[in-house]
Amino acid sequence: MADQMSDKSPEQISEGTDKIVVKDLNFYYGDFNALTGINVSIKERAVTAFIGPSGCGKSTFIRCFNRMNDLIPGARVEGLVSMDGQNIYAPGVDPVDLRRRVGMIFQQPNPFPMSIYDNVAYGPRLHGVRKKSELDDIVRTSLERANLWKEVNGILDRNGLALSGGQQQRLCIARVLAVEPEVMLMDEPCSAIDPTSVQKIEDLMAELKDRITIIIVTHNMQQAARVSEFTAFFLQEQAGEPAVLVEYDRTANIFTSPQDRRTEDYITGRFG
C-alpha cells in the first residue's frame, strides 16, 4: 500500500492560515496504540471533515484538540498538538480554559436539565458574567447565531429537554457559542436528528465558519462533501493496529479525484 500513499503530505495544503497543527501524533489507550504518525494542519475559519470507517480513530483524534481524552485513565498523547502556535499539552495550559476556546458538540444532544436560558447562560456565568442585561444579550445573540432564537424566544424559561432533538442540538451549539470559542468540534452532530434539523445545522455551519474553525466527524460522506472545505480520511487497516491518516486534501479533490486507492475504495463504498 505504501506506493499508493498520497504524495501530498498534509502540510502541503498551502492556502489559508493554520489554526491547529498536529505533528507526529501517536495516541495510546494504555498499551494500545490507537493512532500513529498523524500530521495535519487544520485551517482557520473553515470546515474540516474527518471521515473513515468505525473504529478508525477519528473521534479519538478530535478529542485530542480539547484534551477530552485526558479524562480517560491510561490515555496518552505523544507528539505535538498546537493551536495558534501554542502547544496545548504544555504544562501551563489549563484544560478548562482550553475547552472554552475549543467547544464540542456530541452525537446525542445533551442540554442541561434546566431552562433554555440557563443552558446558554451557564458558560458565561461560569466565566464570571453576572449582569442580567449582559447575560440577556449573550443568550439572545448565541441563540440567534445558532438559528434557534425565532423558535424559542417566547419560551426561554422552558426546560431545554422539552425541545425536539434538532432544537436541542442547536441549543447545545448556542451554549458553546455563548463562551465565544475559536474552534468547534462536532462529533457526529447530526446522527441522531431528523433531516430538516440536519439541514438547519449544516446551514448553521456554513454561517459560523466565517468566525469559527469547525472540525466535524461524520459517517455521512455526503455530509462531509456538502459542508467541508477540507477532508481527512482515517483508516485502521488491521484490527489491533493503529489507525493512520491516509489522505488529507481539499474536499472537492477527495470526492472527485482522491490520490490514494484506499480513500477511493472507501468513499465509493467498496469497503467500510
Binding site: M221, A225, F255, T256, T263, E264, I267
Partner: peptide, 9 residues
C-alpha cells in the same frame, strides 16, 4: 446513488 470519485468521473 450519490456517486463520488471514479464512479462520479
Amino acid at each position: 446513488q450519490s456517486p463520488v470519485a471514479r464512479d462520479l468521473r
